[in-house]
């Protein structure tokens, strides 16, 4: 169109119009409607525990893979177990809530006020892991670093609030303790209070609290006198950057591993992880299908243990959970 030509003949115009028409005719298809062919579609919103978060993300990734259900849009938010229940799940905003502890009575009450019926599904077992810096050498010889439950409680409880390591044990360095842990909205936090500090005690507040467990790893990895705790999955991705402490519950020191967690040796910190679909949401096919997919893969070594870093369900557990899910789906569709 840049060049000056000597006029457009009628013929040129007609030719181009005809060409356009031909292309236009070629550009028509029969109407298949707007719904997508095959596969399921719809939105799924998931809130809750940061501990279960990586597991949920892994399941999302596999479920929405191209050959599975690419048109299901799953969003996952790491809000802490409690934060998820009170703010998102029990208000009816999300379809699933992940939790690193069972749902509390108060939360169940809030849910039922809004006609939300949570269905408890155990999806894995975690070893809540206490980590310190790789250069911290006062916890015992390399490979056998250890802390007793009492010492752990002393470090984290609001009563003693030791500021230096020597306050906990006079043989330890006179250096300030740097604390990294989950926020109070976290199930990990609740579980830690329950099992380590004790229900009547309270957790100290002068620590770096975050719902992003990798920040805990980062903080500990960068500071020699730091200690932190979070779900095993985050440790298992970073075994070279931080050191996991063994925990001595009176029967000698046990390191957190998938084996010690599944055998129940790692006490008191091995714990079940849950996801709670809302029963009403299960009436939708894509939600029910995702819940079933998650449970069916909850025994998968490759996803749960290798990719994420938790202890997979046993087949018996899986079958029990599938039965529970099926009856919930049935109840929902009635």
């Amino acid at each position: 169109m840049a060049k000056q030509t000597d006029g457009v003949s009628r013929r040129t115009f007609l030719a181009s119009a005809a060409a356009t028409g031909a292309v236009a005719a070629a550009g028509c298809t029969s109407n298949t409607g707007t719904e997508t062919d095959g596969g399921l579609s719809g939105d799924i919103n998931i809130s809750g525990s940061s501990t279960v978060f990586p597991l949920a993300v892994a399941m999302r990734e596999d479920f929405t893979a191209e050959e599975m259900h690419p048109n299901v849009d799953i969003s996952v938010n790491s809000t802490g177990s409690g934060g998820g229940f009170t703010n998102y799940f029990c208000t009816g905003d999300t379809d699933f809530n992940n939790a690193s502890r069972p749902i509390k009575g108060v939360e169940e009450g809030q849910c039922s006020d809004n006609d939300v019926t949570p269905v408890e599904l155990k999806v894995a077992t975690d070893a809540l892991t206490v980590v310190v810096n790789n250069d911290a050498d006062w916890f015992g010889e390399e490979g056998k670093e250890c802390l007793t439950v009492e010492q752990l409680a002393e470090v984290w409880s609001a009563e003693d609030k030791p500021t230096t390591w020597s306050d906990v044990n006079s043989d330890w360095p006179d250096e300030e303790i740097q604390l990294y842990g989950p926020t109070d909205a976290s199930g990990t936090f609740d579980y830690f209070i329950e099992e380590v500090i004790g229900e009547e005690g309270s957790h100290r507040t002068d620590y770096q609290s975050t719902e992003q467990d990798n920040q805990i790893i980062n903080g500990v990895a960068n500071s020699e006198y730091a200690i932190g705790y979070m779900g095993f999955a985050y440790y298992s991705e970073n075994t070279d950057r931080v050191t996991a402490l063994g925990i001595d519950n009176g029967d000698g020191c046990v390191k957190p591993t998938l084996d010690t967690a599944s055998s129940g040796e790692y006490q008191p910190l091995s714990r079940p992880l849950f996801t709670y679909p809302a029963q009403s949401a299960l009436a939708e096919e894509h939600v029910a299908e995702f819940a079933r997919f998650w449970l069916e893969n909850s025994t998968s070594e490759s996803i749960v243990a290798d990719e994420v870093g938790y202890v997979p369900n046993t087949e018996d557990e899986r079958d029990e959970m599938l039965d529970r899910l099926d009856s919930a789906i049935e109840a929902a569709s009635e």
Partner: peptide, 15 residues
């Protein structure tokens, strides 16, 4: 921002 990961829309103390 940190409180947001806590008990927010439910109207609790954090909110």
């Amino acid at each position: 921002i940190q409180l947001l990961t806590g008990d927010v829309t439910g109207g609790g103390l954090a909110y």
